[in-house]
Amino acid sequence: MKKHAKLLLLLAPLALAGCGGGQEAPTARDDAQWDQAMTAGTDSFDLGRYSVAINQYRRAATLAVLRDDGAAIAEAGYNLAVAQLAADQPQAALQTLQAARQAASARGNSQATSFDLVQAAVLYRLKQPQQAIQYAQHALADPSAEAQGRAALVMGLAADEAGNQAALQQANSILQGLNGKLSRSLQADKAEIAARYVLASNPAQAATLAEQAATLRRDDAAYSDMSRALALAGTAASRMGDNNRATALWARAAQSAAVEADNAAQGDAATLAHGALSRGNTHTASEDAQQWGAQAGTGLVLRPFATPKTP
């Protein structure tokens, strides 16, 4: 009996090895270069090194063209556009989306909904809310709940800016319709759009929802979304007549957005060499910081811990 147990112990690793992954269908991941570029890009993106991520995704997209792989082109192009948007380069993201759409559709791949989602966000960033609403409506057709929720958020934001109450209501109803175990991001989307929807009728509730959304965003490390939610809470507080709270909220939003703008503006040598910073980008984070800082009133120090300027 003891001998059998030893034998079983010896054979166990073999059995475990047999439990390893089966044969997978060949994909672009088999191309080590492409996969490496995508992985490096995603790692850099997660670390907030957007310029590095942009370079890596651009390399991956080029390799996908070399591979003549529509799916790989779509993935790399999508990631590149998202990274450019995060790096506050909406114009460049728009060009990337156009190129990626053409290259992917020419190779029989039509993942239009994900491109639509990014395009909607880009157009919202470029102050074209009506077009953003249209693209967001197209993006709602995505089967993924998370993508739907994001599309609804973009639509709600664009509708709020354009004063399109019907679209805002549609976005809110879509987000309220999401049930089950929702991610923090989706919960925050839901709260933010709900706050915007009730802002006119019930500013107190709107303020609560907005602050709740801001907390969720902070936990999710989505700080640009967080500062937007804080600013919304400030507006709601102002509508309530609580000016001190409103000023504090706007100041918090402005300071966070200012740091975000600084990070986006820093760029690395590669970004400067490619001239991405000099292509007339909108610097939306910086504009938001200025606007909220102005709402918070004069005397606000946007960068309290900045190095003092030497004469």
Partner: peptide
Amino acid sequence: KKNRLAPRQVRP
């Protein structure tokens, strides 16, 4: 493993 960035990374 997904190479595609999550939809929540699309930051309007």
